[in-house]
């Protein structure tokens, strides 16, 4: 009963956030729009019984990535007048056309498509309605352990690379 209501609310919330990201004149409001979208999507994950993904979404994206965005926006300063010249020709027409196509596709899918390939998450098992963390851990550390370790290595390399770039000066070493 509560699920459709929550879904509609959160879907509208994420759309409103997405529009704010693009439309807001002030980058801080754009960042806040992105925060709204991330939160709404996190709630949608909870509706799909993916509690772990929802929590990680909030910790990583809303908690860390977006905080860094805000930090950078504030350090650069938001008072500088924006350059509103559009460098790419026809970019508005192109994006508008693309958005129209996607909307058409989504509309057609809703009207004529069949949704058997995305069943709603249902569970009668009280353990899995209360979160999926054990199930995810089991998959992550047995079947997909190689992919997991490779991702960890990739992230470590990225972090080391960022530090190396930050310390690199022309003419030194």
């Amino acid at each position: 009963m509560a699920e459709p209501i929550l879904f509609v609310l959160m879907a509208l919330g994420s759309l409103a956030g997405a529009v704010t990201v693009v439309a807001a004149r002030n980058p801080v409001y754009s960042a806040m729009g992105l925060l709204g979208t991330l939160f709404s999507v996190a709630v949608l994950y909870v509706l799909q019984l993916a509690h772990f993904v929802a929590a990680v979404q909030v910790i990583v994206y809303a908690g860390a990535v977006l905080t860094l965005f805000l930090f950078v926006i504030m350090l650069i300063g938001v008072d500088t007048s924006e350059d509103w010249d559009e460098k790419l020709p026809y970019q508005r027409a192109f994006v508008g056309g693309l958005a129209g196509l996607i909307a058409l596709f989504a509309g057609a899918l809703t009207l004529f498509g069949n949704f058997d390939w995305v069943p709603a998450a249902t569970s009668t098992d009280p353990d899995s309605t209360n979160g999926t963390i054990q199930a995810i851990a089991e998959l992550l550390f047995t079947d997909w352990v190689l992919a997991f370790e490779a991702t960890a290595l990739l992230l470590t390399i990225a972090a080391a690379g960022a530090i190396a770039l930050a310390h690199y000066r022309r003419g030194q070493t």
């Binding site: 925060l35 910790i59 809303a62 930090f71 504030m74 209360n130 979160g131 963390i133």
Partner: peptide, 24 residues
């Protein structure tokens, strides 16, 4: 919650937005 500790981490990282936005 099954994800109790993660939820706590998530919310404590949310708390910083208030300070940042109030300041800005």
């Amino acid at each position: 919650l099954n994800i109790g500790l993660l939820f706590i981490l998530a919310m404590s990282s949310m708390a910083v937005y208030a300070v940042v936005l109030a300041g800005w």
